[in-house]
Design a protein around this nucleic acid. Sequence first.
DNA 1: CTGAAAGCGCTAACAC
DNA 2: GTGTTAGCGCTTTCAG
Lengths: 354, 354
Amino acid sequence: MAATVGRSEGSAVPRSADVARLAGVSRKTVSRVLNNEPYVSEEARTKVLAAAAELGYRLNQAARTLVSGRTGSIGVVALGTAGYGTASLLVHIERAVRDAGYALRVVNTPDGNPAGIAGAVESLLEQGVDGVIVSEPIVEGDVSVRVDVPVLFLGAPPAFTGSRTVTASVGSYALARAATEHLLDLGHATVHHLAGARRWYATKDRIEGWRAALAARGAHEPPLLNGDWSAASGYAAGRELASDSSVTAVFAAGDEMAIGLIHALREAGRRVPEEISVVGFDGNPVFAYVSPPLTTVRQPFDTAARQGVGLLVHAIERPDAEVPPASEPPVELIVRGSTAPPPSHKGRSPLHTT
Amino acid sequence: MAATVGRSEGSAVPRSADVARLAGVSRKTVSRVLNNEPYVSEEARTKVLAAAAELGYRLNQAARTLVSGRTGSIGVVALGTAGYGTASLLVHIERAVRDAGYALRVVNTPDGNPAGIAGAVESLLEQGVDGVIVSEPIVEGDVSVRVDVPVLFLGAPPAFTGSRTVTASVGSYALARAATEHLLDLGHATVHHLAGARRWYATKDRIEGWRAALAARGAHEPPLLNGDWSAASGYAAGRELASDSSVTAVFAAGDEMAIGLIHALREAGRRVPEEISVVGFDGNPVFAYVSPPLTTVRQPFDTAARQGVGLLVHAIERPDAEVPPASEPPVELIVRGSTAPPPSHKGRSPLHTT
DNA sequence: CTGAAAGCGCTAACAC
DNA sequence: GTGTTAGCGCTTTCAG
């Protein structure tokens, strides 16, 4: 509570007035140079920059923020999990935010936290951010927050309405559809689906994509299998499935669940992909090196993060302009060794790729 | 560049003066209540809190920071990779920082970035942080930054000296040693090591732990195998190793490399663990579900993050107090199915655990 | 226990 | 192109 941050002892921290004095200009000119404003002579600019460097001057963001209202940072609300998917997305968000010239604040909302998104956004707003990214993939109840900055919903539908709301998709629906279609194309009569944790939007999206693919082909929709993203839950589902000889194809909503599923199936004596094909979801490269190498779909986190942050920054910097439409991210199916035609099928053979 | 953040239209954002007016007290009293300072009557406290809630008052951090020098946030410099290890560590850092009552700023330093750590720390300092966590695991050249806040080096030796430097270990050395000893205990004459990416501290630590274990048993030290953490690099190493029949045990510096290695070995017709044992490093639970289930050591990211952040916060809040000594994190070996006694060995059988 | 005055370091207006 | 003046919203003195 009672904190004291010691200034470096001996020499005081230089302020803009010190730079101005050393450069022989006014403080306002220093400000202009540091903010890349026009109407500064080359000469003044050079002198100011030299003086700032000599003094080791560091602009005081707090002061700048106080007067300008601009913080130069964007806050992200994420789920504190270290899974390949969520971690990749965060990495790409950080990069996109930094490339756009903003700093990043991160607040995680551990699953089960009662404060949830609202509390996280609130804390971000209090700290000061020019925009908020909600990458929190969990369905919450009513979220009511008063936000006066633009909000980007990444991979989830808007959970609340802000002054300016933008959304960007990671394409879960289309990817789930592609994964299911791949299995159908191979000749499977239908495809079972091992879904992810119940409250995630991603789970819902993937179920819908799977359903749509089935419906489009007139395939029967088998009962849903429920997992929680973990390999252990995939394993549990696999044990149930192993005894059902009618199952020939499963689309798992996550790579790790697919791995657990395959493990259980093989333990039970079912061959993959000869008897049962399995497709994962995520695209973690390590699963190209297990047996069988996992067929999966890759989530375009890079594209999604870049596009989403682009839209957000646009909304921040040009409050009056229209937000350009978001384009759908690419669909990438990675066919490896865990999928093949069904046992009875005489058709085309599976493609093996890395 | 030219950014304008629109305040919510219609009603202005409430300030502390508004709260004071509504509560019938002075601004200073509002400040006292909001900062949990003593010497405020219960009555005043209640009134202020009610007024703040009614107005939806949000304290302006920038103003507070400007005058108090305290930002209430901690910055972390990380490597922007989505690997299980780095991602887990970041998640645990975030949690520890939040639990300590601070906000988190994140700056990644993509490998190969010339600005490197120094630039990242500089940007953090400019944004305003009360402390810095350097979780950047790469060996940089000379790093010179003027830091006037405490710095925590997590899993890496201090890369520069600040006013107050604290360190916390994730125990790489001890874990590498335990992994190697496990193999030696099984009866292997010696253990090969597949190292991680060259510039990482973690790589160095693990090599040293491996060497120490070998030396302690008087085992011959075979030439080092070089990887880059990826499963692909483990696979490449495995192809080389497969033809060398003298190899009976390999300690890989990462789970993913171990997976790639095993895959190559099996492709080449070598049996794991019957002919060659492999131990990984990280403890990603998914690898309990591959064949063979991977024996590995678990990195105690939770403990390390909590302890490190604790030390950092201590240094921030009690600049004059001694920094308590850091204790070594626990060593956890997870024995699964990828390790067994060497082919010729008649001794004890491998332990299988999940 | 409470309040009044001062000012943190910077940028927004407006002059020049 | 440049400088001057004012003030962002809060916490810190220091009196009461």
